[in-house]
Amino acid sequence: MPKNARAVRDWPLWEIFIRSDHGLAHKHVGSLHAADATMALQNARDVYTRRNEGTSIWVVRAADITASVPAERGAFFDPAEDKVYRHPTFFTVPEGVKHL
């Protein structure tokens, strides 16, 4: 799309990851534009934690993320499907045993 004078260069896109209070891992919550990492962190606070959603924020430049290619999905993810032992439900827990 041709750009005219009005569309000056936009700030780069950042992906935002937030960890909430509950001890969970950082979770992708969305993206935003910022001139640099400092501003991305500040903007993430203002955009994505307006309702006290988070206690820790990671920002990553969208261009720096390498994503798997959908066509390779089989080769990339199938091996993990064999490792059923990695999933807790693989193990049967003897009756009466708790807190596992």
């Binding site: 799309m1 750009k3 005219n4 009005r6 569309a7 000056v8 936009d10 896109l13 969305g30 935003l32």
Partner: peptide, 20 residues
């Protein structure tokens, strides 16, 4: 607006193009 522009950006258009 920001969330939605972000969703649109995943389809290969930049926000400033949409703004324009």
């Amino acid at each position: 607006g920001l969330y939605l522009y972000s969703a649109a950006e995943t389809l290969g258009v930049a926000r400033d193009e949409l703004t324009e």
